[in-house]
């Protein structure tokens, strides 16, 4: 199975701090960890989960062995990084941030009660794509509850998946 994995710029993970062996012209070496969801295992995401986990760098990852699929992530017993998705750093990350900001403005300006939130959007741009993705979804949640939050996250993921395919 091929999935995606966001890492920090130095190749470490946000949650455990594990430093992944990075790919060069060839895939990186296999990493093996027993699967215990939320405890251990190779955590990755599908295209539809991308918006929940955006980070500094993006890699394609090959998963193998025992694979457990959960609502917003996939956990496997084996994985190796196949390639760095340079498009993410070469513009897509900033485009995603801008798209989320525009969307957050659109939702906030549609409801008079949410206009105060509109003022927080532009100053948050420097916080990056993960924060802006959250803000757009959280403003949608203010308008339509948790279903609207999830719908906005799905919309963001579809936007990303479409551009990663092309």
């Amino acid at each position: 199975m091929i999935g995606y994995k966001f890492l920090r710029a130095d190749g470490s993970t946000v949650f455990s701090g594990f430093s992944w062996p990075l790919p060069g012209s060839e895939p990186g070496p296999w990493v093996e960890v027993p699967v215990h969801p939320c405890r251990s295992g190779i955590h990755a995401c599908r295209a539809g989960d991308l918006s929940y986990w955006v980070g500094e760098t993006l890699y394609e990852i090959e998963l193998d062995g025992e694979i457990v699929e959960q609502r917003h992530k996939v956990i496997a017993s084996r994985g190796r990084l196949l390639r760095r998705v340079r498009a993410w750093e070469d513009g897509l990350r900033d485009e995603f941030t801008r798209m989320c900001a525009n969307r957050a403005h659109e939702i906030a300006r549609a409801e008079p009660v949410l206009t105060a939130l509109d003022e927080d959007i532009e100053p948050s741009i420097s916080d990056g794509p993960a924060m802006l993705g959250f803000m757009a979804a959280a403003i949608a949640e203010e308008r339509g509850g948790m279903d609207a939050y999830r719908a906005e996250r799905e919309r963001q993921a579809a936007w990303l998946a479409e551009r990663l395919r092309s």
């Binding site: 946000v14 980070g55 993960a130 959250f134």
Partner: peptide, 15 residues
């Protein structure tokens, strides 16, 4: 697992 996922989702965007 659901709460852990929500926890990690928050950690991912909140420095």
């Amino acid at each position: 697992s659901e709460t852990a996922a929500q926890f990690e989702e928050h950690i991912n965007f909140c420095d």
